[in-house]
């Protein structure tokens, strides 16, 4: 069972929920932090990192002794990572999305592979939990390939037991890359107009992928009924409400998972996993 935890809005409690799920299951758990720009689930889970590897993208480098300045590499590139004018060829590796098109179209064999580091993948153990995370290089714009690679590191395809993926906020490629090929998506929101607005965006993103989806309202008790009413209208299952409480906020502020302080919450999450798995 692979469950992704996502949201449109940042700060709704994705990591809080993902960590609760991981700590509440009776099954062997793999935890994958796919929020590679701000991976912070390790603060709750405190894993012991056992290994790491740098991840590079293939980008074009030009052998000018072979280049005949035909411009085919320039013309195939949608991202303007290569340009040719007169007898000059220039590459812009940070524009490159590593599609490999320029390598293929070059008849002179003048485009050779160079590598551009975009981040690092780390893995280890948090108690019994198999822990994985990606860390995007500061200033790097392309997180999706790193997310894909982190998932690959977990042997995602064959993975047994329960896999929890902590997604980045938003509604674009990094989120899609995280939730793709999962069995269920939990959208975490808060009961405010802000939460509702971004929940609508996230739900419409996920609906394009056809993955079963449910909603958890975090900090329930504050705000308004907008989220609840909307979920009802849409037929989107409301899986759980996590009440707003001083104890939870205080635990969070110290980096302690809220299932450790909120009585009965672990059982609720365990039931939820059972229910989703059914």
């Amino acid at each position: 069972m692979k469950i992704a935890v996502a949201s449109g809005k940042g700060g709704t409690g994705k990591t809080t929920v993902a960590v609760c799920l991981a700590l509440s299951s009776g099954q062997p758990v793999t935890f994958v932090d796919c929020d590679v720009e701000e991976p912070n689930s390790h603060i709750f889970l405190r894993p012991e990192i056992e290994g790491s590897r740098k991840f590079h993208l293939p980008v074009p480098g030009i052998d000018e002794s072979r280049c005949n300045y035909c411009g085919k590499c320039r013309d195939i590139c949608r991202f303007n990572a290569v340009t040719v004018f007169g007898k000059t060829i220039m590459t812009f590796p940070d524009m490159c999305h590593s599609c490999g098109g320029c390598f293929l179209v070059c008849e002179q064999d003048a485009v050779r592979e160079e590598r551009r580091n975009i981040g690092v993948i780390e893995w280890g153990k948090a108690g019994e939990i198999d822990f994985f995370q990606g860390k995007l290089r500061i200033g790097e714009a392309m997180s999706s390939p790193l997310i894909k690679e982190v998932k690959k590191q977990t042997l995602f395809e064959e993975k047994k037991g329960l896999t929890i993926l902590d997604a980045p906020p938003g509604t674009s490629c990094p989120v899609i890359k995280t939730v793709r090929d999962t069995d269920f998506v939990i959208l975490v929101t808060e009961p405010t107009p802000f939460g509702l607005h971004d929940l609508k965006l996230a739900a419409s993103t996920i609906s394009t992928l056809g993955i079963p989806t449910g909603v958890i309202i975090n900090k329930s008790g504050v705000g308004d009924l907008g989220v609840k009413n909307w979920c009802k209208d849409q037929g989107l299952p409301l899986l759980m409400e996590i009440p707003f409480s001083r104890e939870a906020a205080s635990a969070y502020a110290k980096g302690v998972p809220i299932v450790e302080v909120e009585h009965g919450l672990k059982e609720k999450f365990n039931e939820l996993i059972e229910e989703i798995s059914r």
């Binding site: 320039r74 991202f79 303007n80 990572a81 340009t83 040719v84 007169g86 524009m95």
Partner: peptide
Amino acid sequence: AHGAGINAATMVAQSGAEVVLTGRVGPK
């Protein structure tokens, strides 16, 4: 979405112009 400056500069270079008059130019 990306690389507008690269594309524009390439076209200008191909035009044979020797001088550009403009407002602002980015690094690429």
